[in-house]
Nucleic acid binder design. Structure first.
Length: 570
DNA sequence: ATCTTAGTAAACAGAG
DNA sequence: TCTCTGTTTACTAAGA
């Protein structure tokens, strides 16, 4: 017990790179990686590079086969991948990654066989464009090539970072109308993926840079190769992968919904097609690259997902981003992110990504309890819910289980009740609402940061544009709106009223019953007396609904419960 | 600077 | 004895 706690402490030390890279390095169900994957220094192997390169080319391939409706999606993915590769390029440039000349050629050659001539033409145009761009960059004192012996094959791995794939306001992208002569290099450099609106777009950095030169200096000085940048890069890669997973699932769900409703999408399977195609291309390779067994392999070619737009910032909060260290002031409480909708929309994300959920233990426990039909859970069932719902909680067991028990005991809102099957825990909604802090006044900067996150705001807009472009009337459906702008607006304007604003929502199984009073459960054995509480919040207590997402929990022997429908909770 | 809240660690006790 | 459950205390950190 003590030993386990000690190891957990070590692992959750912020400097521990495993906490960041665990998603890709997780090799066993327990997630007790010990750095044996050679990944602990944040290095990105040539295999990773090839993987990314392959992804990039797959995107190009798919784009040729897609209609315009998928372009926005694909282009957003390209942007994300550019960001990844930009980071990797930095690593390469600084000698962290040594790509052997022969290695880079392999996927290109194989892809040559798979691509039609026009695809290849486009690809090599891109390659040529980037080469010219690199030359132009050199003239600015930026040597992007560390290995001059690497010609086309190596350059191919660097295709995307310098290609300005910024979406146009209409959702189109300049990727297919490249002007890649050196005379345009200013245009290219002026649209650096990490630079926009006079700000550095590096995750978590909003440094003001008057011009590109200043930005480049800033980039090289503040975001040079170090542990932090490397970790951020890896996290960003994981984020993208998870977003791709999410999109694939949401697209599949959409197809099923539309099929069920006898709606005929303008291009059947238009969403999944590229995903499957790309996945099939690179799946086997990624399997060999250490993608965890339990994790679904992210589709290589995917577009901006729905839910993580809103959820992105919360996931990528400083703490949860790295999945390490204590998280204070989770925004479920601070920003009143509706935990139910958040979990309902991103349950797969939290299930698969080793990302700490941006909720307090108390809110998670409450959610777990309230989503059960009888609104009561044993401690073990609460444990099970945590491990089922969050990959993060499949490890650090000593830490979070203790925290769960601690919260159950500490908070008056959790009431222990003896019933026939032993002690169960229930939620006293009145007490829970009492303990919630006052309404958030809404710091513009804070809210802005939450929404923008790692540039998800633009992705979100593009995604909506793409949806609109796809003539998907579903965009106006509450679900989708909640996933995108609607959710953001909710976050902006609802604040703590999220409780009352969603209270009327009914879950799919119709259980919109209010939170039952603890007295409704058998005879109460013990009610804790919580120390001094702020009673200033006299708002009427809202009725609560709940969300249940049954998630398989590999590696855990505990019960796999029924799959329950979802409903809004807060 | 102070207070509140949350997360973590740990000690301890009781029950099975 | 061991494990699980539950309680409590202490400490730290973040945010207001």
């Amino acid at each position: 017990m003590m030993v386990e706690s000690a190891t957990e402490t070590i692992r959750t030390t912020p400097s521990n790179q495993n906490g960041v890279s665990s998603l890709s390095s997780q090799s066993d169900g327990g997630g007790r990686e010990g750095g044996s994957n050679g990944d602990t220094n944040g290095e990105i192997s040539p295999v990773d590079l090839l993987h990314l390169q392959q992804q990039q080319v797959c995107v190009c391939m798919c784009q040729q086969q897609l209609g315009n409706k998928q372009l926005a999606f694909q282009q957003q993915l390209i942007q994300m991948q550019q960001l990844q590769q930009q980071h990797i390029l930095n690593l390469q440039r600084q000698g962290l990654v040594n790509l052997q000349p022969g290695q880079g050629a392999v996927p290109i050659q194989s892809l040559q066989q798979a691509m039609c001539p026009t695809d290849l033409q486009q690809l090599w145009k891109d390659v040529a464009g980037i080469q010219s761009t690199e030359e132009a960059m050199k003239h600015e004192g930026l040597d992007l090539t560390t290995n001059s012996s690497n010609t086309t094959s190596y350059s191919a791995s660097k295709v995307s970072p310098q290609i300005p794939h910024h979406p146009l306001p209409n959702g189109q992208n300049s990727v297919h109308t490249p002007k890649r002569d050196s005379s345009n290099h200013e245009e290219h450099t002026a649209s650096h993926p990490l630079y926009g609106h006079g700000e550095c777009k590096w995750p978590g950095c909003e440094a003001l840079c008057e011009d590109m030169g200043q930005f480049i200096k800033h980039l090289n000085s503040e975001h040079a190769l170090d542990d932090r940048s490397t970790a951020q890069c890896r996290v960003q890669m994981q984020v993208v992968q998870q977003l791709e997973i999410q999109l694939a699932k949401e697209s599949e769900r959409l197809q099923a919904m539309m099929t069920h409703l006898h709606m005929r999408p303008s291009e059947p399977k238009s969403f999944n097609q590229p995903l499957n195609l790309a996945s099939s291309v690179s799946l086997s390779k990624r399997e060999s690259e250490g993608f965890p067994e339990g994790l679904p392999h992210p589709p290589t070619s995917a577009a901006t997902p729905i839910t993580p737009m809103r959820q992105g910032p919360s996931v990528i909060s400083s703490s949860s981003l790295h999945g390490v260290g204590p998280i204070r002031r989770r925004n479920s409480d601070k920003f009143c992110t509706p935990i139910a909708s958040e979990l309902a929309q991103n349950c797969e994300f939290y299930k698969n990504a080793d990302v700490r959920p941006p909720f307090t233990y108390a809110s998670l426990i409450r959610h777990a309890i309230l989503e059960t039909p009888d609104r009561q859970l044993t401690l073990n069932e609460i444990y099970n819910w945590f491990t089922r719902m969050f990959a993060y909680f499949r490890r650090n067991t000593a830490t979070w289980k203790n925290a769960v028990r601690h919260n159950l005991s500490l908070h008056k809102c959790f009431v222990r009740v003896e019933n026939v099957k032993g002690a169960v825990w229930t939620v006293d909604e009145v007490e829970y609402q009492k303990r919630r802090p006052p309404k958030m006044t809404g710091s513009p900067t804070l809210v802005k940061n939450m929404i923008s996150g790692l540039g998800f705001g633009s992705l979100n807009a593009s995604y909506q544009a793409a949806l609109a472009e796809s003539s998907l009337g579903l965009l106006n459906s509450p679900t989708l709106m909640n996933n995108s702008t609607g959710a953001s607006l909710n976050m902006l304007h609802v604040g703590h009223d999220d409780v009352s604003s969603t209270v009327e929502q009914v879950n799919s199984n119709g259980s919109c019953s209010p939170g039952l009073s603890p007295q409704q459960y058998g005879h109460q054995v013990h009610v804790k007396e919580e120390p001094a509480e702020m009673e200033e919040d006299s708002r009427p207590v809202s009725l609560m609904a709940s969300v249940t997402q049954n998630l398989s929990m590999p590696g855990d022997e505990r019960d796999m419960d029924e799959e329950l429908p979802t409903e809004e909770l807060e």
